[in-house]
Design a protein around this nucleic acid. Structure first.
Length: 280
DNA sequence: AGGTGGACCCGAACGC
DNA sequence: TGCGTTCGGGTCCACC
């Protein structure tokens, strides 16, 4: 599941491939990808644009054009991008789009579950769109303890749900939420506003540490995620909580438990991360 | 307004 | 073995 580290890894792989190149051919074979817009119309508008940069904000990829416009790609759960330096791509039933560049190379978009999106923006429009949806970048200096504390204040929802809210902090998904809470020794069901100042500071630090480690290991490959060159991430080998039901906690050997929080599978250590009642 | 739960997808895993 | 059912995950949206 692409979260911040996975999307950042994709960005780093794509930037050198795309920057400075012009789109000479764009084929979109899934109408869900661009809806409510006609995929043919989007493909036509993309064609001829010269790419100047590939940026990331939260889990969004931003392909910026010389024109000032931008293509915003969200991979959701199963989207992935694959670059083909010589322009040749193996058959793939889940391929949804292919762009060809002016040097003969190609980039293919694959998405098994078809939740991903490609949205085109006019010059200047993309920042507003992203700022409407996203809080601070967790690895930037803007994500301070004071900013984080303000975002948690008066929130009565479980802390896990609040850090999954992209307005609280951009880019945390189900995996890194569980990993950050495990590192901070905070139970996922704790009421967000009830965290102590020390806990807020600790959780800010562990969110950053978990995401940073994910970036270093080029993300986590579980099923569908892969780098643009086809390689795999390594973060899955360092999971302390996510998906580890019944396995011993890396700190105290207590078996990891699985619960539901806000409808999401949630793994935590029942001993290190005390329950809401015990923790008072 | 903030919180909750369903919809959207579809392959994998599971249950009988 | 085979078939039906359940699960999951990011975001949006309806509802309270």
């Amino acid at each position: 599941m692409p979260e911040l580290p996975e999307v950042e890894t994709v960005r780093r792989g794509l930037e050198p491939v795309l920057a400075g190149r012009t789109l000479v051919d764009v084929r979109i074979s899934d109408s869900r990808l661009t809806r409510p817009h006609d995929p043919l119309a989007v493909a036509m508008r993309l064609c001829g644009n010269r790419i100047v940069a590939v940026d990331r904000r939260g889990k969004y990829l931003i392909v910026r054009f010389e024109s000032g416009g931008a293509l915003v790609i969200h991979l959701r759960m199963t989207g992935s991008l694959r670059s083909a330096p010589d322009g040749s791509l193996p058959d793939d039933t889940h391929r949804r789009a292919v762009v060809t560049l002016d040097n003969g190379s190609a980039v293919a978009y694959r998405d098994v579950r078809r939740f991903g999106t490609w949205d085109l923006f006019e010059p200047g429009a993309v920042e507003q769109y992203l700022d409407d949806r996203l809080g601070p970048e967790p690895l930037s200096g803007r994500f301070t303890t004071a900013v984080f504390a303000r975002a948690l204040a008066r929130r009565r929802a479980p802390i896990k749900s609040v850090i999954l809210d992209q307005k609280t902090v951009a880019g945390v998904g189900n995996i890194y939420a569980d990993e950050a809470l495990w590192r901070a020794k905070i139970h996922p069901l704790r009421e967000a506003a009830a965290l102590t100042d020390v806990e807020v500071a600790t959780l800010r630090r562990t969110i950053r540490a978990a995401l940073q480690r994910g970036v270093e290991l080029q993300g986590s490959t579980l099923r569908d995620y892969a780098l643009p060159d086809g390689e795999y991430g390594g973060m899955q080998n360092e999971f302390k909580a996510y998906g580890r039901e019944g396995e011993p906690c890396a700190r105290c050997r207590t078996p990891i438990e699985k619960i539901k929080v806000g409808g999401r599978g949630t793994w935590y250590c029942p001993r290190c991360q005390r329950s809401p009642r015990e923790a008072v």
